[in-house]
Design a protein around this nucleic acid. Structure first.
Lengths: 140, 140
DNA sequence: ATTTGTTTTAGAATTATTTTAAATAAAAAC
DNA sequence: GTTTTTATTTAAAATAATTCTAAAACAAAT
């Protein structure tokens, strides 16, 4: 029993071409839930795929975002991170270790935004601080 | 009756030096609630202050953020905007006209983040879509 | 007024991202 | 199954945003 669709299937369903770089990058994102940046993705996959360029990583992630296959999350300092989990959830950015944590967010997000007449396409909730691990560490 | 503190007073209260660039930039932000980027601030003030450099705008805004005199808001595409209104509020980014709107957010923001053990320093709630004005426009 | 320590400046450097035009690969047509 | 069409990838150069650096300018304390 494998109910998991692979990267190729998902690309096909989205109606965009199934190319090697897309499969590699999307597959990487589906398997690594670390919210990597383009640079991190590139660093990790280039060993196994030397012909793939950083520019392609930028292009492919952008394309995947356009088709709602992945989401882009912007860190407080403006870095762009990518996440293959598209269901709405909040993010917690640890200022100490730099990790990004997924946080469930059960709120009725619609009611968060009170701007009559506006069409809300998406909402992002982010928190900044110290993650549980860093917060429990002894001070130096 | 003028109950508004000026930029100089606020800098002094924050315990940092009152310098000309800081006063100019902070004053600009107090008077313009348009959530400008460093570049926009620079473009607007350089006519009246030719000696002031873009690098100074970056340095000063960063300093003001450090001392909680202004807040930094990061747009969905990673641009950094600055806002002299530090009281918590949500932001709405219009994808059509590019404007940023302030949205009141009465929610108990603490309860938005469910990550036991974490120290939450700040929370940001952002929405993306079309602003009331753009949404009501006829399609071309 | 002089000193002291900090801040600002201009320009260079860096980083992140985008663009370009040529090369390539996928899907469609034959 | 080969050709044609069209979308995509590549590499390199270009652009944009931000940071760094060392010298000059300045504010506060003496």
């Amino acid at each position: 029993m494998h109910n998991t669709k692979d990267a190729g299937d998902r690309l096909r369903e989205a109606g965009i071409r199934v190319t090697t770089p897309r499969v590699i990058i999307y597959d990487y994102l589906l398997k690594h839930r670390t919210h990597p940046t383009c640079d991190e993705i590139y660093t990790d996959i280039k060993a196994g795929n030397p012909s793939l360029s950083l520019a392609s990583v930028y292009n492919v992630t952008e394309k995947l975002v356009d088709h709602d296959l992945i989401i882009r999350i912007v860190s407080p300092d403006g870095e762009r991170h990518y996440d293959a989990v598209t269901k709405f959830h909040a993010h917690f950015f640890c200022g100490k270790c730099g990790k990004i944590f997924d946080v469930s967010c059960d709120h009725d997000t619609e009611q968060l935004i009170d701007l009559p007449g506006a069409v809300v396409n998406s909402i992002s909730v982010s928190a900044y601080g110290e993650c549980p691990e860093c917060a429990s560490e002894v001070d130096p």
